[in-house]
Nucleic acid binder design. Structure first.
Length: 225
DNA sequence: TACCAGGAGAAAA
DNA sequence: TTTTCTCATGGT
């Protein structure tokens, strides 16, 4: 029995927002990576960091042919941190990435991990120091293609401004609410989260107030763009 | 100069 | 149990 508070979200409204985002931005083809393992590394590095800076850190690992769990574990912490520097919090992230790679190797790699059910995989990911709910769900959705809805700051902001949530709900409360409302659809979860991020970047990076204006327009006219 | 970006964990209250 | 603090670079 889960302990999260129940929250009901309007299925049709969520579907409508999704369709409007999709019509505006087209499919995003997430996650931008060449392999499931690169997705996982990117998920750790993108914690509180701009993706462009994460790409630089990933490029450093690729350039030195170290974008693999054994490759990362073979590096000393100082070298790894130096290559992760562009993504910020490099000392913290070097430790987190090593923790994750240790777990990944112990678990037998992606093929063995794929055999596990989603709940146990999520539980194990969360047991790794440095993997929190959002990072775990990024990995489950984009690396393992499991129907898990990722809740991030953009999701909270968008749906609180649309008046569907307060924005202060717990992570699990929101995740379960979105999953119940949308149904267990990996493809939709993948695209929905990517579109939310795309929308937030598109509007907020240019001018923060635009998002509010646009959502007000959405509430009045039903049109996002 | 100040703020933000695809958070998480430890410490303090 | 909840809130606050810390980690840090790079772009706007």
């Amino acid at each position: 029995m889960s302990s999260h508070a129940a929250l009901s979200l309007p299925r049709r409204r969520l579907a409508s927002v999704y369709q409007r985002l999709l019509a505006t931005y087209r499919p995003q083809h997430w996650w931008p990576a060449d392999s499931p393992f690169e997705v996982m590394v990117g998920a750790v590095l993108t914690q509180n960091a701009a993706w462009a800076n994460v790409e630089r850190a990933l490029a450093n690992l690729k350039r030195h042919r170290c974008l693999s769990a054994p490759g990362i574990l073979d590096l000393d912490q100082e070298q790894l941190a130096d290559w992760l520097r562009p993504s910020g919090y490099f000392n913290i992230k070097a430790g987190r990435l090593r923790n994750f790679c240790q777990w990944y190797c112990n678990a037998g790699g992606v093929r063995r991990l794929r055999r596990r059910d989603t709940a146990s995989l999520r539980y194990q990911l969360l047991s790794v120091n440095g993997i929190g709910p959002e990072t775990a769900d990024d990995i489950l959705l984009y690396a393992f293609e499991r129907p898990v809805f990722v809740i991030d700051a953009y999701t909270r902001r968008l749906f609180s401004r649309l008046g569907l949530i307060s924005g202060n709900e717990g992570y699990e409360t929101l995740r379960h609410a979105f999953e119940r409302a949308l149904g267990p659809d990996t493809k939709v979860f993948n695209e929905y989260h990517a579109l939310i991020v795309r929308h937030a970047k598109d509007v907020c990076r240019v001018r923060p107030l635009c998002l509010r204006c646009e959502l007000r327009r959405y509430c009045q006219t039903g049109k996002l763009a």
